[in-house]
């Protein structure tokens, strides 16, 4: 187990290194952030002073070495635009994104599991066909379009839900959350639904396919031959086998949803990290972009680990010897 974790960490470090090189030099090639945010009244001397202050006057390879050195010391640098540590900005915004992504995951599971079990048990029924057609749409229709249509329908036309922003929040353990207030839930509904669609479709397709396969297996037939009740056969004997691929895929999917909630957050002006990333990219705020991407890579590594641990819990054949 220790060796396993160690190997994972080394892989992560390698990925981080390659990623920082690409992003660092990529951003450098795109342009000089100073040109984007200094005011027009700033003279040459003033610009040079800012450049020197941010370290941008040095050669790019030297800047990268300095960045690496600071990274070793755990310092990801200050945001060019905000002048505060980049990580603090991320931590400030992250709860909003995590809340949105978690809400999307809950919607995907709560809706997806019953729908897909129905579709798996009665594959030929019209309801099942409708469910499968909708899951196909969920995959294929772009998120920004769905978001806009939801806003047009439920905010503009019907006026049921607010179109933008995060509602009233309350602090839980010092973290602001919005799902505990009615206003917060109200604001959460549309973005969470939008963000959940791909995960929902994934859950539906995976569970249905898994269920169809597992139901023909001998062990399900054996359980039925012993008179075990259908609810128990489907709900436990079959589901426990299907959960393994679902957990794997959803674990990764959840990471992507957090990392790339960019589109949804932009549409609904959700004050999360995705929105922040877009803003950072548009002003070439390199420390903030890098900090965010390092954060995302780390998150994926951690999610991967969690999935692997869940694996050995769900499937007794995996990783017994390692524990």
């Amino acid at each position: 187990m220790v060796e396993f974790i160690l190997r994972r960490v080394l892989q992560a470090i390698l990925v981080l290194f390659v990623m920082t090189v690409l992003v660092f030099f990529g951003v450098h090639v795109i342009g000089n952030p100073i040109d984007l945010f200094v005011s027009s009244e700033c003279t040459k001397a003033c610009v040079d002073a800012i450049m020197a202050n941010l370290g941008l006057d040095r050669p790019v390879w030297e800047q990268y070495l300095i960045f690496l050195g600071n990274l070793m010391a755990g310092d990801l640098g200050n945001s060019f635009t905000f002048g505060v540590p980049a990580m603090s900005l991320i931590w400030e915004r992250f709860p909003a994104t995590l809340e949105l992504a978690t809400a999307a995951l809950v919607i995907a599971l709560v809706l997806g599991l019953p729908l897909s079990i129905h579709a798996g048990l009665y594959p030929d029924s019209p309801v099942s066909r409708a469910i499968m057609a909708l899951s196909m749409l969920g995959f294929s229709v772009p998120i920004f379009w769905i978001g806009i249509i939801l806003i047009l329908t439920f905010s503009v036309r019907l006026g049921w839900f607010p179109a933008i922003g995060r509602g009233e929040t309350v602090d839980v353990l010092g973290v602001p959350v919005s799902f505990l207030t009615l206003d917060g839930l109200h604001h959460l509904a549309l973005p969470a639904i939008t963000l959940s669609l791909i995960m929902l479709s994934t859950v539906i397709r995976l569970t249905r396919a898994g269920l169809r396969e597992v139901l023909t297996s001998d062990y399900i037939r054996f359980a039925r031959a012993n008179g075990v009740r259908e609810t128990r056969v489907i709900g436990w004997h079959a589901m426990k086998n299907i959960l393994i691929p679902i957990v794997t895929v959803l674990g990764m999917e959840f990471g992507s949803v957090i990392a790339f909630a960019v589109v949804t957050e932009s549409i609904f002006s959700w004050p999360g990290v995705g929105k922040m990333l877009i803003d950072a990219i548009s002003v070439l705020d390199r420390p903030l972009i890098l900090a965010y991407l390092i954060f995302v890579v780390t998150m994926f590594v951690v999610l991967n680990l969690i999935v692997d641990i869940l694996y050995s819990v769900l499937d007794p054949r995996v990783g017994r010897s390692a524990r």
Binding site: D218, R221, F222, A223, N226, V228, H237, K240, N241, P316
Partner: peptide, 29 residues
């Protein structure tokens, strides 16, 4: 099923659910 007529299958590798303990499966039956 199970009370008046029961079945035993061909492949014992496939007859038992791989992710449930023997006790769970027999207990459910």
């Amino acid at each position: 099923r199970g009370r008046r007529v029961a079945m035993v299958f061909q492949d014992p590798m496939m007859t038992l659910n791989p992710v449930l303990r023997v006790e769970t499966q027999m207990g459910d039956a």
